[in-house]
């Protein structure tokens, strides 16, 4: 039984670099087996996630890019704040009594927009943090958003609620949501809940003065601007403090920022109507974001190698200098 469990844990070590597997693999598996409950036959799902995260972290360590892993919670918190504030804007923009609703348009239960369950799910996500369910709530909000995105894509517009959210807006929310999964499960989400309270009020006030026909475009531009400003400020702050997170939050949030930019770049009519344009933009921006991250990791590894080489060279020079001085100096008198 133990051998079978050991074998199954060993299989999960494939996430680790080969060198780490050889050096540490047995030790990690032994510790898991020691911790296993009596009669346990398979690794628990949380163990599988732990080994996957541990393996990926070790791969980053091998590239001297651990700052990327360290930056995930802060990038996740920023993304979550943004999704929640945007959700508040969209909710007010569609369900506020001040917004004109065509009485002939279909409704979704008591709601005027099919997007409303999505926005409510996002607003509930930080509130689940005190229960330790923050990440589950974020995952649920992503699922609801994806379901609404599918509905918006396949249901003809005349059968849809009048104020249905455009696809580009839902896709941006999903992108931000995926980044938000990296927020610290309890503390990060709790901090987010505290921080977003004033932000949500500001968003509500802003939404009330935005004319209905311009739904979302101003909010998207403001969100993109806030996100870019936040990562620049963080980048400068971390770099000044020699914190290894440095500019990694900026690299991690490239995709969400590009997705927020989608609604601004595509023409109003085009972005509302074309599924193809949204899909092409989302895939192209994802590829661009992956390329940025890959290049950043490689550059970090190259810089670390250069630093190590410079250090070795320095030691060689010091040693050579010491040897030369020893040769030229007169022998000590006996």
């Amino acid at each position: 039984m133990t051998d079978l469990l050991r074998e199954r844990y060993t299989r999960l070590l494939r996430w680790y670099p080969v060198a780490d597997r050889a050096d540490r693999g047995a030790e990690i598996v032994d510790t898991y087996v020691d911790l296993a409950a009596t009669g346990q036959r398979r690794p628990r799902p949380a163990d599988a996630v732990d080994l996957m995260a541990g393996g990926l972290r070790q791969r980053l360590r091998a590239h001297s890019a651990l700052g990327l892993a360290d930056a995930l919670p802060v990038a996740g918190s920023l993304a979550l704040m943004m999704t929640t504030v945007l959700a508040a804007v969209w909710l007010i923009n569609t369900e506020s009594p001040g917004v004109w609703h065509d009485p002939a348009s279909p409704m979704l239960g008591p709601f005027h927009s099919i997007g409303t369950p999505t926005w409510v799910a996002w607003l509930l996500a930080p509130l689940a943090a005190p229960l330790g369910l923050g990440r589950w709530a974020v995952a649920a909000a992503i699922t609801v958003t994806a379901a609404v995105a599918v509905a918006v894509s396949v249901v003809p517009w005349f059968e849809m609620t009048a104020l249905h959210p455009p696809l580009f807006l839902l896709v941006a929310q999903i992108g931000l949501g995926l980044a938000a999964l990296a927020a610290d499960n309890r503390r990060g989400l709790l901090d987010t809940a505290v921080v977003i309270a004033p932000a949500a009020v500001a968003a509500a006030l802003a939404a009330m003065v935005v004319p209905e026909h311009q739904i979302g475009r101003e909010a998207l531009s403001v969100a993109a601007l806030i996100l870019v400003t936040a990562v620049v400020v963080l980048g400068v702050f971390f770099t000044a403090r020699r914190d290894r997170r440095g500019w990694w939050p900026a690299a991690l949030l490239v995709w969400p920022v590009l997705l927020l930019g989608m609604g601004l770049s595509l023409s109003s009519t085009y972005s509302f109507a074309s599924r193809k344009a949204v899909v092409v933009w989302a895939v192209a921006s994802l590829l661009a974001a992956v390329a940025v991250l890959t290049l950043a990791v490689r550059r970090q590894a190259w810089r670390a190698r250069r630093r190590a080489e410079a250090r070795i060279l320095h030691f060689h020079r010091v040693a050579e200098q010491a040897a030369a001085e020893a040769k030229t100096s007169p022998p000590l008198a006996k």
């Binding site: 540490r24 949380a46 163990d47 732990d50 541990g54 972290r57 070790q58």
Partner: peptide
């Protein structure tokens, strides 16, 4: 968890 612990030790 062991994956986290050994990462921290490294």
């Amino acid at each position: 968890r062991p994956g986290t612990l050994y990462g921290s030790l490294d």
